[in-house]
């Protein structure tokens, strides 16, 4: 039935047309400028730029830390969303209000505040320093900054779905004798999975490009804690627009592919869930 009712609802032309126009004007045309600029390099120059060991090291660092941060956020973001929606406890509303702060706080301020705290002399860094664990100026510090930046993505995509989630499924599952754990695992989690994947993907994507907060906490040591966006900045400082856009183009293509795959997974999860 779903398939046949394809055009039952009105407004496809209007909404799709507007969306596509807006998308093209604001995203596609501007981003194509990146590729066109990068295309002013010859193939040789292009590969030399992006296969430079330092650039490769920065790609690896950027991807691994973003992935780590997105994973942490997926787990804890889900937990936070669940706790905020399902449980009552003092200070809940306050915490709920804080979730969006990472967006509102300029990334540079976030970077400075986190560095102040997680450096060896900071409140939190000082707790770990005696154990020989350095947080700021290491990949761990970068991951912490990215967790901060990405947290709202997961919480705020899972939260509305969780709020609108009908209790009747859980009810049915419980009535059929399933344990609470089983209900959560088999009934609730699949419902949340598409939103969770979206949140994960967004947090991950955001981490790839993040610059402002990370430069403060990363230490920017070549081969060790130098992130890809910093290298873009480095190229620009030398008026090398083409080189900068080359690195940006690679980052763009990689994140596009990743988002594409995650979106595919998400849609599949959605379909499975709706058929269930």
């Amino acid at each position: 039935m779903r398939n046949t009712s394809k055009r039952l609802l009105p407004g496809f032309g209007l909404t799709m047309g507007f969306s596509l126009l807006y998308l093209s004007l604001l995203v596609l045309i501007p981003l194509s400028a990146v590729f066109l600029k990068a295309a002013t390099l010859s193939w040789d120059q292009f590969w030399q730029t992006v296969l430079n060991p330092r650039v490769l090291a920065s790609f690896r660092l950027t991807f691994l830390t973003s992935l780590g941060a997105a994973a942490v956020n997926a787990v804890f973001g889900l937990l936070v969303a669940w706790v905020l929606v399902r449980y009552r406890f003092p200070g809940r509303r306050f915490l709920d209000g804080l979730i969006d702060i990472p967006f509102a706080l300029p990334t540079a301020v976030a970077g400075i505040a986190l560095t102040t705290l997680y450096a060896d002399s900071g409140w939190i860094g000082a707790l770990f320093a005696p154990l020989g664990i350095k947080l700021a100026y290491t990949p761990i510090g970068i991951t912490i900054a990215l967790v901060f930046i990405g947290l709202p993505f997961v919480v705020r995509t899972v939260q509305p779905v969780l709020q609108e989630l009908d209790h009747s499924f859980e009810e049915a599952s419980a009535c059929l004798g399933a344990s609470r754990t089983r209900t959560l695992w088999k009934v609730v989690l699949p419902e949340l999975l598409p939103a969770l994947l979206t949140g994960f993907a967004l947090a991950f994507a955001r981490g790839l490009g993040e610059y402002g907060s990370v430069v403060f906490i990363s230490g920017n040591m070549p081969m060790k804690t130098e992130i890809a966006p910093l290298l873009i900045m480095t190229k620009l400082e030398q008026f090398d627009y083409a080189g900068a856009t080359a690195i940006a183009a690679v980052l763009l293509v990689l994140s596009f592919l990743l988002l594409f795959v995650i979106n595919g997974l998400q849609r599949r999860a959605n379909r499975v869930q709706r058929q269930a």
């Binding site: 100026y137 230490g219 920017n220 040591m221 900045m233």
Partner: peptide, 8 residues
């Protein structure tokens, strides 16, 4: 070698 942090 003695530089621990390279700020931007």
């Amino acid at each position: 070698k003695n530089v621990p942090v390279l700020d931007s």
